[in-house]
C-alpha cells in the first residue's frame, strides 16, 4: 500500500492554488468535477494527460496562495499518487496531510527528477527511487504527530479517535484533548 510506482510530471516554483484549481470551478466541491480542471491554468492539457498513480515533482513553495482544500482534493481525485517538492506552502501542507494526499519534501529529488521519469516511492521510509534504482533520495521525515494523522488516514479519522464518545458536547471547561496536546 505504501509503495507507489508512477510517471513524473514536473512543475516549477511557486505553483499557486489558483493554478491547481482555478476559483471559477469552486462553485462545486465534488472531487470528480474538480479533477477535470486540475492544474489547468499551469498546463491546460494536464487533466487529459494525467493517469492514476502519476507523481508530481515540483520546485519550492508548492500550493501557495489560497487555503482551498479543493486543491489537494482535485489532485487526489485526478489520480495523483504523491507530490514531491523542494518544499510546500504551509496551508497546502496541512491540507494534504489532513485529507491523506501523500506529499514528500526532498530538495534533491525536486532538482534531479525529470518529466516522464519512472519513480518508485516508499512512503513508510520516505524514499524516492528513480532510474531503475540508480538514483535514491530520502525525504525530510514528518514529525511523529503528523505521522499519526497520516496513519489514521487523515485528520477526521484521527479526531474520531480522540472524541471520547458520540454526541458528547465538548465545552469550554471540559473538553477532550487532541493527542500530542496539552493535558
Amino acid at each position: 500500500m505504501s509503495l507507489l510506482r508512477g510517471k513524473v510530471w514536473t512543475f516549477g516554483d511557486d505553483i499557486d492554488t489558483d493554478a491547481i484549481i482555478p476559483a471559477r470551478y469552486l462553485n462545486t466541491s465534488d472531487p470528480a468535477e474538480l479533477a477535470k480542471h486540475c492544474m489547468e491554468d499551469a498546463d491546460p492539457e494536464f487533466p487529459q494527460k494525467v493517469s492514476p498513480g502519476d507523481i508530481i515533482v515540483a520546485g519550492k513553495n508548492f500550493g501557495c496562495g489560497s487555503s482551498r482544500e479543493h486543491a489537494p482534493l482535485a489532485l487526489k481525485a485526478a489520480g495523483v499518487a504523491c507530490i514531491v517538492a523542494e518544499n510546500f506552502a504551509r496551508i497546502f501542507y496541512r491540507n494534504a496531510i489532513n485529507i491523506g494526499l501523500p506529499i514528500l519534501e526532498s530538495p534533491a529529488a525536486s532538482a534531479a527528477l525529470r518529466e516522464d521519469d519512472q519513480v518508485e516511492i516508499d512512503l513508510a521510509k520516505g524514499e524516492i527511487t528513480a532510474s531503475a534504482g540508480k538514483q535514491k533520495f530520502l525525504s525530510v521525515p514528518f514529525p511523529p504527530f503528523m505521522q499519526e494523522i497520516m496513519a489514521a488516514g487523515g485528520l477526521i479519522n484521527f479526531v474520531k479517535t480522540v472524541i471520547p464518545q458520540q454526541n458528547q458536547v465538548v465545552t469550554r471547561t471540559k473538553r477532550g484533548g487532541m493527542p500530542g496536546s496539552r493535558q
Binding site: S67, R68, E69, I91, R94, N95, N98, I99, G154, L155, I156, V159, V162, I163, V170, R172, R175, G176, G177, M178, S181
Partner: peptide, 15 residues
Amino acid sequence: GVGSTDLAAVMATGE
C-alpha cells in the same frame, strides 16, 4: 488560514 478539514476538526473539538 487553514483548510476545510481543519475547520471541521475545530467545529468538533474547539482545538
